[in-house]
Design a protein around this nucleic acid. Structure first.
Lengths: 119, 119
DNA sequence: CGCTTAGTTCGGTAGTATTGAACTATAGCA
DNA sequence: TGCTATAGTTCAATACTACCGAACTAAGCG
């Protein structure tokens, strides 16, 4: 399994792949949670934090896409897989990109929450 | 025709849709050219500038996706359709987002060009 | 070893993207 | 008016991707 966790070299990471990986509401939510936690997190915990139940296989696939796009790195920690955002590497390669995307996402999310409270 | 050009209100534009629209190399290339030209451009001219021949339908669809995502605005100018990036509006809604994406794209593109010259 | 937990892979279904071919819209000109 | 050329759109078929349940693999613990 571990040998199947492919992490592209930061030089091989493309803008298109990153944007595609983040263009799914669930995946950008995952990245947001991973960044907030500031430590590795597994699939179950992420789904819990997102308050968005999903099948294990679905979660696994989303993590795979994020991983193959170079957005996150995963490693085995005992029984579970711990993932973290490759923030520093990405910042080095594409300065400001991840930040502005996440900032936009958070702005949108908080606006949506506001609208929900007072419809 | 013209009545079929749907432009979402800037408030309805989502991060996911923008990122998806820009996650295609061709589409982000189109946006880049539109920004460089600083004026409206039609499909044929864009394809010409990108040095990437493509079917009319393909071009049309890419423009539609960009348009429906709220990235560009199009209007009829005689025979052709003139499109421009909704840069100011996007900047107001998601500050820095478009800029950093385009900056990343340009960095990647120039790096690729360099590699090509000295393989 | 068997049992539990965490992820991955597989197979099928549903929705979306992409493309060439056919169609529509506009302009120019006799 | 009609004819013709040019620019985009729509259509139908194919290809891709998301999603899920079920079966499989990996690691820890008794």
């Amino acid at each position: 399994m571990s040998r199947l966790l492919t992490h592209p070299h930061i030089r091989d990471v493309t803008v298109a792949a990153i944007l595609h990986a983040l263009s799914d509401p669930l995946r950008i939510g995952i990245v947001n949670e991973l960044l907030k936690s500031r430590r590795g997190m597994n699939c179950t915990e992420t789904a819990l934090r997102l308050k968005r139940p999903m099948a294990k296989s679905t979660c696994s696939q989303h993590y795979r896409i994020l991983r193959e796009a170079g957005v996150i790195a995963s490693e085995r920690k005992g029984v579970d897989l711990s993932s973290r955002v490759r923030a520093a590497e990405l910042e080095g390669r594409f300065p400001g990109l991840l930040d502005s995307v996440l900032q936009a996402y958070r702005k949108e999310a908080s606006a949506a929450a506001r609208t929900k409270r007072q419809p």
